[in-house]
Simulated scan of single mutants.
Amino acid sequence: MAIELYNKNGHVCLMFTHLSDEGGEAVQANQFLVIDEQQGAIIDPGGNMAYNELLLTIGRYFPPNKLTEILASHADPDIIASLDRWMTSTQATLYISKLWERFAPHFCKPGKTAGRIVGIPDPGMRIPLGRSEIVALPAHFMHSEGNFQFWDPVSRILFSGDLGVSLGTSAEAGQPITSLAPHLPRMEAFHRRYMVSQKVLRLWTNMARTLPIAMIVPQHGAPMVGDAIPEFLGWIGDLSCGIDHLSQANYTVPR
């Protein structure tokens, strides 16, 4: 079952929250589908445990063999470990940071990705989709060295990858966050460890505030809407994290 984030005038954004190993060994993860008329892009399609059900579920809304883009925020297994199977079942092109374009083929059988990977340059790029486009926004070091978020100018949804994560169950991921404070216990430890530095978060926040954002949807956990968006921008821009907390004590030989 998909959660409909947006549906107007032939432009549809869908979220899938329930395809990972619920209650098992794997972290909950979201996958996304953006459709504009006859073209479709899947964002962060996930690992092998998500593939079968995601393929079947997508087929209720859009023919999977007509997907034109696979958009990967970075190269972690929960993002694109299923790449080999998507390269087989579709003719889609993978868009991923140029830092990872020669690493992504390691998920696939030899030759499967030949001519089908576009390396996104560090400043980002605009990726055509139907009558519109998806904007790849630089989000480097949040948490990956080569990292992108994907902003849809039609729905004004920001698919934010690992930024904005709230750890919980699939059911909780399907309930939008309208007020940030009650969810900070599920967010703070993750962001303090996985984000690299306050400087990076502050620079990202300056960029984000230039965009009209109706919803922030992370790869783990629930979407943020309404007041939660400016509250999140205010919180994340001032968060000390990552290397801000390191000292020589973190780099000593184990006893």
Results as ranks from 00 to 15, higher is better:
residue 104 A to P: 05
residue 20 S to C: 12
residue 254 P to Q: 09
residue 4 E to I: 15
residue 218 P to H: 06
residue 2 A to V: 13
residue 139 A to I: 07
residue 84 D to T: 06
residue 155 S to T: 02
residue 202 R to K: 12
residue 203 L to P: 00
residue 86 W to H: 00
residue 202 R to E: 12
residue 25 E to P: 09
residue 188 E to K: 10
residue 109 K to Q: 15
residue 74 H to V: 07
residue 51 Y to T: 05
residue 81 A to H: 04
residue 32 F to V: 11
residue 54 L to D: 01
residue 91 Q to H: 13
residue 227 D to I: 12
residue 199 K to Y: 10
residue 91 Q to L: 15
residue 211 L to N: 09
residue 35 I to E: 01
residue 231 E to A: 12
residue 163 L to V: 11
residue 106 H to V: 14
residue 226 G to M: 14
residue 74 H to K: 02
residue 8 K to D: 07
residue 120 I to Y: 05
residue 148 F to T: 01
residue 240 S to L: 13
residue 163 L to P: 00
residue 90 T to E: 04
residue 124 G to I: 04
residue 111 G to M: 06
residue 255 R to V: 09
residue 184 L to F: 10
residue 34 V to S: 07
residue 134 I to D: 02
residue 122 D to H: 14
residue 189 A to V: 14
residue 145 E to Q: 06
residue 251 Y to A: 09
residue 196 V to Y: 09
residue 53 E to M: 10
residue 62 F to N: 04
residue 97 S to G: 13
residue 192 R to K: 15
residue 135 V to C: 07
residue 6 Y to M: 01
residue 239 L to H: 03
residue 128 P to F: 02
residue 227 D to K: 15
residue 82 S to L: 06
residue 73 S to D: 13
residue 166 S to G: 14
residue 155 S to F: 04
residue 112 K to R: 14
residue 147 N to F: 07
residue 178 T to D: 09
residue 144 S to N: 10
residue 115 G to V: 03
